[in-house]
Amino acid sequence: MSRRRGSSIGKFELGDTSPSLSTMDVSKHQRQKSSERLISLAEKPTTDKQVLKKLWLSYLELCYRQTWIHPLTVLLATIGTYLISNPEGKIHQFLEKCIFPSYPIEGTDQYGKGENDFYFVAYYAIFFTFFREFMMCIFLRPLAYHFGITKEGKVKRFMEQTYSIIFFGTSGTCGLWIMSKLPIWFFQTTPMYIDYPHKTHDLYFKVFYLGEAAFWLQQFVILILQVEKPRKDHYEFVFHHIITVALIWLSYRFHFTWMGLEIFVTMDISDTFLGISKTLNYLGSPIEVPFFILFMLVWIYMRHYINLKILWSVLTEFKTVGEWELNWITQQYKCYISQPIVFGLIAALQLVNLYWLFLVFRILYRIAMGGPAKDDRSDDEDEEEEEEIKKDQ
């Protein structure tokens, strides 16, 4: 399939999606080790020891090619150990904390909070690693080839953005559904303070919130571990992830989860439209420019109007609506200490979003001035990447 040269829409550095294990650059050392394994596997084994070595090398090579196998192994080993272990034993009880939500309140549909939630988040960070890598390797890479995307740089970006559509589209929809059952439906701010503190939640709310925490923890770890050439907005990207993780933990610990839910939804929905906009560019769709403009409107409404509305409520309603005191016994933390912290973290997130909005308007300007314009990551760079890989091989 003949493909046209892409516009800047698909390549501008914007959004919350970190690289995955399967889209990281493969080092020369990794490729060399793979070649050595393939040479060893081609040799005919003559002893049992060599057969075992060949099985081990086959497993390593398979994991090198299919990055979802390692996390799946951890998940299966965990579930298997849980099922066969003594229900009264410490191992079984520990794994139960990892696999299932903790602190159900007897006689109600509510769940409390506690240190066991850290185990749950850590375990499902591993799950999201598996799920993401599985989708990348098994479905999204073949899908990219199916649509005629062959340059490795574009394939990787297509995979990342298509996965973001899957995850953020699902989580944004779930977040809206959960919000619809609460007084804060459609981003109301006053109920966040009237009913504070929110010390318990139903199962759906708790799983959603901790699931978001697990996703962002996984994203943050991958971002720290990634070895590819950093994006041009690398520091802003890292700063965004640090602020996001801090907001999640502090909002959960100090019971500002209704506010956190609203911010989650604004991020997830806007990222869904961002992923669709970029993917349409990679596919060379004729509606990429109209959809880019739609994405801009959604981004401005969600990431700026709604978030500024929440910021304004922190200034005007945080103190005047509901109780205003610091009481560690009753877990009442809406006070003179938490107000500047809450405002500062959301404002910091807003600063990163404003920087990304500047990039959005820069792309719009380039489109208005006559169409595609060269951006920081060009198709020529993709060709250079492929050429370098060929030389190493």
Results as ranks from 00 to 15, higher is better:
residue 232 K to R: 12
residue 232 K to M: 00
residue 233 D to S: 05
residue 233 D to E: 05
residue 233 D to A: 06
residue 235 Y to L: 09
residue 235 Y to D: 10
residue 235 Y to F: 10
residue 236 E to H: 12
residue 236 E to M: 11
residue 236 E to C: 05
residue 237 F to M: 10
residue 238 V to G: 06
residue 238 V to E: 07
residue 238 V to D: 02
residue 240 H to I: 01
residue 241 H to P: 09
residue 241 H to K: 13
residue 242 I to D: 04
residue 243 I to Y: 03
residue 244 T to G: 02
residue 244 T to K: 07
residue 245 V to H: 03
residue 246 A to C: 14
residue 246 A to P: 00
residue 247 L to P: 00
residue 247 L to H: 05
residue 248 I to R: 10
residue 248 I to Y: 11
residue 248 I to K: 10
residue 248 I to S: 10
residue 249 W to Y: 15
residue 249 W to S: 09
residue 250 L to G: 04
residue 251 S to Y: 09
residue 251 S to P: 05
residue 251 S to D: 04
residue 252 Y to I: 12
residue 252 Y to V: 07
residue 253 R to V: 10
residue 253 R to E: 14
residue 253 R to C: 09
residue 254 F to W: 14
residue 254 F to A: 05
residue 254 F to N: 05
residue 254 F to M: 08
residue 255 H to A: 13
residue 255 H to Y: 15
residue 256 F to M: 03
residue 257 T to D: 14
residue 259 M to G: 12
residue 259 M to H: 03
residue 261 L to I: 14
residue 262 E to C: 15
residue 262 E to M: 15
residue 263 I to K: 01
residue 263 I to D: 00
residue 263 I to E: 02
residue 263 I to P: 00
residue 264 F to N: 02
residue 264 F to I: 05
residue 264 F to P: 01
residue 264 F to Y: 15
residue 264 F to D: 00
residue 265 V to C: 09
residue 265 V to L: 11
residue 265 V to F: 08
residue 266 T to K: 03
residue 266 T to R: 03
residue 266 T to D: 02
residue 267 M to D: 00
residue 267 M to P: 00
residue 268 D to A: 12
residue 268 D to K: 03
residue 268 D to H: 10
residue 269 I to H: 02
residue 269 I to S: 02
residue 270 S to W: 04
residue 270 S to M: 09
residue 270 S to C: 11
residue 271 D to R: 08
residue 271 D to W: 06
residue 272 T to A: 13
residue 272 T to R: 05
residue 273 F to T: 04
residue 273 F to I: 07
residue 273 F to M: 13
residue 274 L to E: 01
residue 275 G to R: 04
residue 275 G to A: 13
residue 276 I to K: 03
residue 276 I to A: 11
residue 276 I to W: 01
residue 277 S to G: 14
residue 277 S to Y: 08
residue 277 S to K: 09
residue 277 S to N: 13
residue 278 K to Y: 03
residue 278 K to C: 10
residue 279 T to F: 06
residue 279 T to E: 05
residue 279 T to I: 15
residue 280 L to N: 08
residue 281 N to W: 03
residue 281 N to M: 11
residue 281 N to E: 15
residue 281 N to P: 05
residue 282 Y to V: 01
residue 282 Y to L: 06
residue 282 Y to P: 00
residue 282 Y to F: 15
residue 282 Y to G: 06
residue 283 L to M: 13
residue 283 L to P: 06
residue 283 L to F: 08
